[in-house]
């Protein structure tokens, strides 16, 4: 019995990675109806920036900040730089293409993704990079039969705090109402006096920043990062956001967590090699029966 609980914890851990990345996809999609293929690479870039801070600033960190301070520093540096990168990409690659419709933006997003990925390869080299291994003490905590590492608890707490904050902003504040209104109908929202540019600014800073923090967490969890990993995580996270109902922010969180848990349960009870097939099959089945995702609302068709 304890296997299922351990797999649930593992699933929630990687599910929270997917959820945090999926939020970036879903927010941008909600506001601009654009699939931001570069988002997976924002995540990779964040991971590499965190790696650089942790490795090359190691002496500085141990002398001045201590372990936790160092992690906070890495997170802050990565998140703020990625917020800036997100804005730059939006200005240079997406904004000029918006008026032409949705499909040219897809190509432009793929182009931005290629640029970012190859920029990472040029700067850090094509090989795998190893995250420092002794960051978080490798202590297991035992509750009954279940083992959890400190790192997992840290990741779960941090991601739930981040998701909770975002949920609060989007669902409870006035600005959050503006974001939801923009996602529902951009033109009408702007007629109601909502500053669309402010909303775009928000989603293109916060999305990549969340992605960057996830990148650091993934680096600490798997200890190994590569410049192409953004594609895999991006694909899964995008799947998660569609599973939850794309454009819907609680949906992205739920979709990510469900996807992670399904993946781990599939690996444990069906077959590790077929776990991704299992995940995509579930996705297709969900979409056949609920074409707008789990939390997505059915929209009236426009005639």
């Amino acid at each position: 019995m304890h296997v299922i609980f351990e797999q649930l914890i593992n699933g929630l851990t990687i599910g929270s990675f997917y959820a945090l990345i999926a939020l970036g996809y879903s927010m941008v999609y909600g506001v601009l109806k654009l699939i931001n293929f570069a988002h997976g690479d924002f995540f990779t870039l964040g991971s590499y920036l965190g790696y650089t801070v942790l490795v090359f600033g190691a002496a500085l960190i141990t002398n001045h900040f201590g372990l936790w301070g160092g992690l906070v520093l890495a997170m802050t540096v990565a998140a703020t730089s990625l917020a800036a990168v997100g804005l730059i990409v939006e200005r240079l690659a997406y904004r000029p293409v918006y008026p032409a419709g949705r499909l040219p933006a897809v190509v432009s997003a793929l182009g931005a993704s290629i640029v970012l990925q190859n920029a990472i390869m040029v700067i850090w080299g094509p090989r795998f990079q190893a995250y420092p291994s002794n960051l978080i003490p490798n202590i297991h905590i035992q509750i009954g039969d279940i083992h959890i590492t400190i790192l997992q608890i840290l990741i779960l707490v941090l991601s739930f705090v981040l998701m909770g904050t975002l949920y609060f902003i989007v669902q409870k504040t006035t600005f959050g109402a503006a974001i939801r209104a923009t996602a529902l109908d951009r033109d009408t929202a702007s007629l109601m006096g909502i500053n669309i540019n402010k909303v775009i600014f928000f989603v293109f800073t916060l999305g990549p920043a969340l992605g960057a923090m996830t990148g650091i967490m993934v680096g600490m969890y798997y200890r190994q990062i590569s410049f192409t990993m953004g594609w895999n995580y991006g694909l899964k996270a995008f799947t998660a956001s569609v599973l939850g109902g794309i454009g819907n922010i609680p949906g992205a969180m739920l979709g990510g967590l469900i996807l992670g848990v399904l993946e781990m349960l599939g690996a444990a009870y069906i077959s590790a090699a077929w776990k991704d097939v299992f995940v995509f099959l579930i996705l297709i089945l969900v979409l056949i029966f609920r074409p707008r995702g789990i939390l997505g609302e059915k929209l009236a068709e426009k005639v």
Binding site: L92, P96, A100, G111, S113, V115, N118
Partner: peptide
């Protein structure tokens, strides 16, 4: 190549 794709769509 990536830059060219973006420029083309622009």
């Amino acid at each position: 190549f990536g830059l060219a794709m973006i420029l083309m769509m622009m």
